[in-house]
Amino acid sequence: MSTRRCSLWPAGAVVVAAMAALLIGEMPARAQDTSAMKKQMLGQWELSTAERSKTCVVTLKNDSTAQGFRLELEPTCAAALPFTKEIAAWSIKGLDIVRLQDAAGQSVIDLTEVESGILEGLRSGEGIYILQNLIAARSLAKSMDQMIGDWSMVRGNGQSICGLTLTNNEATPDNFQLFLKPRCDPAVAGFAPTMWRLERGALLLMAANGAVWRFEADDNAQWRRTPDTVDPLILLRQ
């Protein structure tokens, strides 16, 4: 005589229990991830427009508030970035979102990591803002100062095809003026760049029509146009 074993739990309850077990198993890992990110974020950061034309120093602290953790903004922040007047605290949402929030806990801006030590967030109608380690940001500012001056654009064989001058004169809120010298190669003259900026370690030359040439520093402290070609263009300091 055969016997049938009866489950004490309905099938649906088994599924729910399994899902609950998975969630419980994930909770310690998520808590660890959040704790690690919080520790990584403590300290001084620079909040800025995408190209650092307007900046604000933010100090993220470990002290708890009603809605998150305490922070301090430099007195000049409100003038540089008016929306920072609303920021009262910071918190971590999910696994990788750093939220700068108002006193009620509502987001003023949410930022996510795009590179090590660099977070990016969007404010509707305003554009992209960058949060990065203050020391790294100031190093970038120094790098920008070092870019100002005369440069020569050469081909891979060393033939000079154009001279140009990078200035620190603001062309738009995020870009600086660039001037070509006379007798440039037609390819460069046709491109006709008028502005430049540094963006995440790359040098961008921009034309009035929106065209962009991107250069990256190579091992020889030269700037090579990317993507690379069999006949590369290289920028050399004059």
Score class of each variant (00 low, 15 high):
Glu74Ile: 04
Glu72Cys: 09
Glu72Met: 12
Ala104His: 02
Trp213Asn: 04
Leu111Asn: 00
Leu42Gln: 05
Ile130Glu: 07
Gly117Ala: 01
Met27Glu: 09
Ala192Lys: 12
Val212Tyr: 09
Phe69Leu: 11
Ile87Tyr: 02
Asp63Ile: 11
Lys38Asp: 03
Arg52His: 14
Glu170Trp: 10
Ser2Asp: 13
Ser7Cys: 13
Ser116Arg: 13
Glu199Tyr: 15
Leu180Ala: 00
Thr167Trp: 00
Ile148Ser: 03
Ala78Pro: 01
Val15Met: 11
Ala66Pro: 01
Ala29Pro: 01
Leu233Ser: 03
Gly163Ile: 00
Thr76Met: 10
Gly149Pro: 01
Gly127Ile: 09
Ala36Trp: 10
Ala221Pro: 04
Ala189Val: 08
Gly105Glu: 01
Thr65Ala: 04
Leu164Tyr: 02
Ser160Ile: 12
Trp9Cys: 14
Asp102Thr: 02
Arg237Trp: 07
Ala217Phe: 03
Leu42Val: 12
Val188Ile: 15
Gly158Gln: 00
Ala20Gly: 09
Leu180Asp: 05
Met195Asp: 07
Ala21Lys: 04
Ala50Cys: 04
Ile109Leu: 00
Glu74Gly: 11
Val230Lys: 12
Ala211Met: 12
Ala187Cys: 03
Asp150Val: 08
Ala78Glu: 10
Met37Arg: 15
Gly94Leu: 02
Pro193Glu: 02
Pro173Ser: 07
Glu170Cys: 05
Ser64Gly: 08
Gly125Asn: 08
Ala17Cys: 11
Asp145Asn: 10
Ile109Ala: 00
Ala141Glu: 13
Ser53Trp: 06
Glu46Met: 13
Pro10Ala: 14
Gly210Trp: 05
Asp33Ala: 15
Arg155Asp: 09
Ala20Asn: 01
Thr59Met: 10
Ala31His: 15
Leu81Glu: 04
Glu72Ile: 10
Ala50Phe: 15
Leu122Ala: 12
Phe83Val: 02
Ile24Ala: 15
Val16Ala: 09
Trp9Lys: 13
Ser139Asn: 13
Arg155Met: 11
Ala137Asp: 08
Ala189Gln: 14
Leu81Ala: 08
Gln146Tyr: 02
Val230Asn: 10
Ser53Ile: 06
Pro193Ile: 09
Asp218Ile: 06
Met41Arg: 07
Asp219Tyr: 08
Gln40Cys: 00
Asn168Ile: 02
Gln146Phe: 03
Leu100Gly: 01
Ile130Asn: 05
Ile128Trp: 11
Tyr129Met: 06
Gln40Lys: 14
Arg200Asn: 15
Ala217Trp: 05
Pro28Ile: 02
Arg200His: 13
Ile87Ser: 04
Gly121Arg: 04
Trp223Met: 07
Gln101Lys: 00
Gly25Pro: 07
Met147Thr: 02
Arg30Pro: 05
Asn175Gln: 09
Trp213His: 09
Phe69Thr: 06
Ala18Pro: 08
Trp45Phe: 06
Trp9Met: 15
Ser107Leu: 02
Gly127Cys: 07
Asp231Met: 14
Phe176Ser: 11
Leu204Lys: 12
Asn133Ala: 09
Leu22Asp: 06
Pro182Val: 08
Ala79Ile: 06
Asn175Ser: 10
Glu46Tyr: 01
Ala217Asn: 10
Thr76Trp: 04
Asp150Ser: 08
Glu115Tyr: 15
Met206Pro: 06
Gly94His: 01
Asp174Asn: 13
Val14Phe: 03
Arg52Glu: 11
Gln106Ser: 02
Thr55Trp: 00
Arg155Thr: 09
Asp174Gln: 13
Arg214Ala: 10
Leu22Gln: 09
Ala13Ile: 13
Gly149Val: 04
Met153Thr: 06
